[in-house]
Nucleic acid binder design. Structure first.
Length: 849
RNA sequence: GCGGGCGUGAUGGAAUGGUAGACAUACCAGACUUAAAAUCUGGAGGCCGUAUGGCCGUGUGGGUUCGAGUCCCACCGCCCGCACCA
């Protein structure tokens, strides 16, 4: 008997699959299509267990769909632009391009041993000129359609690295690499007009039924929505060409309680005043600096600066309200100007008390006349309150009703107009970076900003660049910038900004439908393969990547690159949990923690006998050394074991803890199944003639039924539990070998989405026809799913007191009779009659006394 | 602060409102072995009891129901997201 040797088996079957090209996706007239996609990886150079789990889940779905008669598209690519490549170039020399393509080659060679059912012929990297050239074409079409524009925007500027930093790269007000104090700078940047679609992107969330409710909610909150009033307050005396201050408020009903006006430090009026008012300039500079420090922001003191300018009160023309610059008013929400209503907003109240501004109650509780003192009165908008001198004449109403009526009233009086405001801001895509997709426009002294001609695409990144000094190499490249203006032909300069890498990942799923097309997509292929039927990835992309992709799909429809049906590109989304591991720690002489790799620890001790502290599981990370290398696992146990384990122990949406004993158990199970298969490989003629075995047939039917339903509902861990049970049932069965052999073949089929190599091997040993991967999924015989007899628990007043074995189709009356004749029931009834008997056929009997 | 999710044996977890703890790990016992490993068989929520069995048990407290881990309310704890949004 040969034993289970995954290394031989896995290499063999991977070669067969590759030779037969069985994973090549082809459009089929007969079969329904199925597009399964896992979020493509960043080519860091090394796969980790998280990748293994993510791709295994997708692979289970892809292989299952293949077996159930679908034409499957399961592609893979690389999210290959981005900072790490440039950082590597700066740190260790070399070129980002070389670093990236070397990493891709490494990672591809690490992924192939997993035996994933990927159509590698469609592979691409976002840094391939063929890909980013089409992205540039898409950009030009979007520019043409008015979906892209330029504006001045404040950015985080690192003066040492001479680059713009994302908010996440600013830590305690300092650049994450350089440690330099980050400055706010105003730069002209490119933006996608995603805010134009805010309402649509929000509403369409309702239709995404097969997305996790959590992700929909996160997007909903991110987009935000509030209805309010935009209105002008006339300046008492016009100043710097400002005649009025336009404010936005969601509480127009409290207009009568206005105590002051507040504008953002970056409000145009504030900026105009700043030029002739040094203390204000200092205040603003201070406020802008504070803006970047997250920690300070949370508890930042509300501070203001009185400009000395006033507006006329729209309700009481003889009264004026002072305009303050306030550090808590944000320029990029609403109009950057508000009126403060201290009585009904805690923040405004704190501000008013600090600067001795009036506090005017506009409504009181139904049963309390106490005016506001230290705590602002902010009841729920659905609560009835009594209004004081309300401009619309309202006396008793809820806040919500008052808001709506005030908006109507203000519109009728021409004071302002109702306005729906979204929190979502336009997507700034400019990056002062080399390793990204060049923005295909030219700056011409005569013609201004001119789009590049499509026939000149791709605008390729130059290879001859250096990273030894900070800043964007494109900016200082001697020749690359020089180009004739596409419009007038005069010598001009290229845009040197590149695109945010989120752009690259916002349409790759569409490109996979026709990766070689000479346009961004091929409409026929897109129409056939889109949408992605099942998208799988991490929850960390719940907002940005998924929101941007939804925006891009719409933009691609508008520009003629996707059909209308594909504006929501992902029909179903699944967010998988992480792979975690215990952390092993000791301390050095100075008491600092020292971490140890799992392979160096056994039974809580290092090899030299030192005891380690075990810290509860956390996401695998290099810094904590709680990592298990997939390559090591594959080398010692095989890919099937790794695949089986990452699916087995926890529900896919939750974190799974990697344990050595769990991996061992997975390997043992596969070895056992392999042994079972070799045991029933050869059968005698007596075996062939042995009769059917009903118990085993039942176990088989139940397993088929259960595993099928579990895979369809992402219950991989539950499917695996059923496969363990079926394996035990076969092992213990006294049925003839021929019968058992058929059961083992079914077992191999049901396991094949999870452990394709060993399943293929067993199929071949046991004389299965063709490849198991292409074999049709087994079906459960309905008649076998129902047992002849069932054991019904008997409850008395809801507590289990006995059981009854009855034939499964026995009617209620008979069951009731038998139940009442049961010893336990007779004992408690003592000759009396029960109040009620509940019989749930096939389930339970409950006798109420 | 706002929003959401989750609390089940030693551990990961299972359970269309119907026998709580499937399956797996760790553990214990037995078989095989000179021994160990591997393999196989069996045990196991807690308490009481030799046992048939009984009582308790899904974070805490209430409620709905013939029946609640599951539905509702309040609280406690943990996790996640957002947060000066006018």
């Amino acid at each position: 008997m040969t034993s289970y040797t995954p290394s031989n088996i896995e290499a063999h079957w991977q070669a067969v699959w590759e030779k037969e090209e069985i994973f090549r996706a082809t459009r089929s007239a007969e079969k329904p299509k199925y597009y399964v996609l896992e979020m493509f990886p960043y080519p860091s150079g090394r796969i980790h267990m998280g990748h293994v789990r993510n791709y295994t889940m997708g692979d289970v779905i892809a292989r299952f769909k293949m077996s159930t008669g679908h034409s499957v598209l399961h592609p893979m690519g690389w999210d290959a632009f981005g900072m790490p490549a440039e950082n590597a170039a700066m740190a260790i020399g070399g070129h980002p391009k070389t670093w990236t393509y070397d990493n891709i080659a490494d990672m591809r060679s690490q992924m192939k041993p997993l035996g994933l059912s990927i159509d590698w012929s469609r592979e691409f990297a976002t840094c391939d000129p063929e890909y980013y050239g089409q992205q540039q074409a898409l950009f030009l079409d979007m520019l043409d359609a008015g979906l892209v524009y330029r504006k001045n925007a404040q950015v985080n500027w690192d003066p040492v690295d001479m680059t713009v930093l994302a908010n996440e790269q600013v830590i305690d007000g300092k650049g994450w690499r350089s440690g330099a104090d980050v400055e706010k700078r105003e730069l002209t940047q490119w933006f996608f007009k995603i805010s134009d679609m805010a309402g649509e992107l929000k509403q369409a969330l309702d239709g995404l039924e097969n997305w996790p409710a959590k992700v929909r909610l996160m997007q909903d909150n991110w987009i935000g929505e509030s209805r309010g009033l935009e209105m002008d307050f006339a300046l008492t005396t016009p100043k710097h060409n400002f005649e009025a201050l336009t404010i936005y408020t969601t509480r127009p009903d409290t207009l009568a309680g206005a105590g002051f006006m507040a504008i953002a430090p970056d409000h145009p009026l504030s900026k105009a005043l700043e030029t002739e008012n040094a203390p204000l300039a200092a205040f603003n500079a201070d406020a802008r600096r504070m803006d970047t420090t997250e920690a300070a922001m949370e508890k930042a003191e509300k501070k203001g600066f009185d400009t000395g300018i006033t507006v006329k009160h729209p309700l009481y023309p003889d009264q004026t309200l002072p305009i303050w610059v306030a550090n808590f008013v944000l320029m990029d929400y609403g109009t950057g100007a508000i009126f403060g209503c201290p009585a009904h907003d805690q923040r405004d109240l704190d501000f008013a008390r600090k600067y001795n501004l009036p506090v005017i109650d506009t409504f009181l509780a139904m049963d309390d006349d106490t005016p506001v003192a230290k705590i602002a009165f902010v009841p729920a908008k659905t609560e009835m309150v009594r209004w004081i001198n309300h401009p619309t004449g309202i006396e008793i109403a809820t806040g919500q009703d008052a808001i709506n009526q005030t908006i109507d009233w203000a519109e009728a009086k021409g004071l302002g107009h109702g306005q729906t405001q979204y929190r979502l801001r336009d997507w700034g895509l400019s990056r002062q970076r080399y390793w990204g997709c060049p923005i295909p426009v030219v700056h011409c002294k005569t013609c201004g900003v001119v789009p590049e001609k499509k026939e000149n695409l791709p605008i390729k990144l130059p290879d001859d660049v250096s990273f030894d000094i900070p800043g964007n190499p494109l900016d200082r490249h001697p020749t690359w910038r020089n180009t004739p203006c596409p419009s007038c032909g005069k010598a001009s300069k290229r845009e040197t900004d590149t695109m945010d890498t989120f752009v690259d990942s916002s349409w790759y799923f569409a490109r996979f439908t026709a990766p070689g097309a000479k346009t961004p997509t091929n409409m026929e292929d897109a129409a056939y393969w889109m949408n992605v039927d099942q998208y799988i990835g991490g929850i960390e992309h719940a907002i940005l990547h998924l929101l941007y992709s939804r925006f891009f799909a719409r933009a691609m429809h508008i520009t003629g690159h996707l059909p209308k049906s594909a504006v929501e590109p992902f029909d179903a989304l699944f967010t998988q949990g992480m792979v975690t591991h215990e952390i092993y720690q000791t301390r050095d002489a100075k008491g600092r923690p020292v971490y140890h790799l799992p392979e160096d620890v056994s039974e809580g001790k290092l090899k030299n006998g030192t005891k380690v502290d075990v810290i509860p599981s956390a996401k695998m990370s290099k810094s904590k050394k709680n990592v298990v290398d997939p390559l090591g696992i594959i080398a010692s146990y095989g890919a099937d074991t790794a695949r089986w384990f990452v699916l087995s122990d926890s529900p896919p949406e939750r974190d799974v803890e990697w344990t050595a004993s769990g991996a061992e158990a997975a390997y043992k199970h596969l070895s056992r199944v392999y042994r079972l298969a070799t045991d029933v490989k050869t059968v005698s003629s007596a075996d062939e003639n042995a009769g059917a075995d009903l118990d085993l047939a039942r176990a088989r039917a139940l397993c088929i039924d259960g595993v099928t339903r579990d895979i369809e509902s992402f219950g991989f861990n539950a499917a695996i539990a059923k496969l363990y049970a079926f394996t035990a049932a076969i092992a213990k069965s006294k049925a003839g070998k021929a019968i058992k052999r058929e059961s083992v073949k079914t077992l191999a089929q049901l396991m094949s989405p999870m452990t394709p190599h060993i399943s293929e091997e067993i199929w071949s040993i046991l004389g299965g026809e063709g490849l198991i991967t292409l074999a049709p999924w087994p079906t459960a015989e309905a008649s076998l799913l129902k047992a002849d007899t069932v054991i019904l628990p008997i409850q008395i007043n809801g507590k289990r007191r006995g059981e009854l074995q009855v034939s499964a189709d026995l009617n209620k009356e008979e069951v009731e009779k038998l139940a009442l004749a049961h010893d336990a029931v007779i004992k408690v009834l003592q000759g009396g009659t029960p109040k009620k008997v509940i019989v749930v056929p096939g389930r339970i009997v409950n006798v109420v006394i």
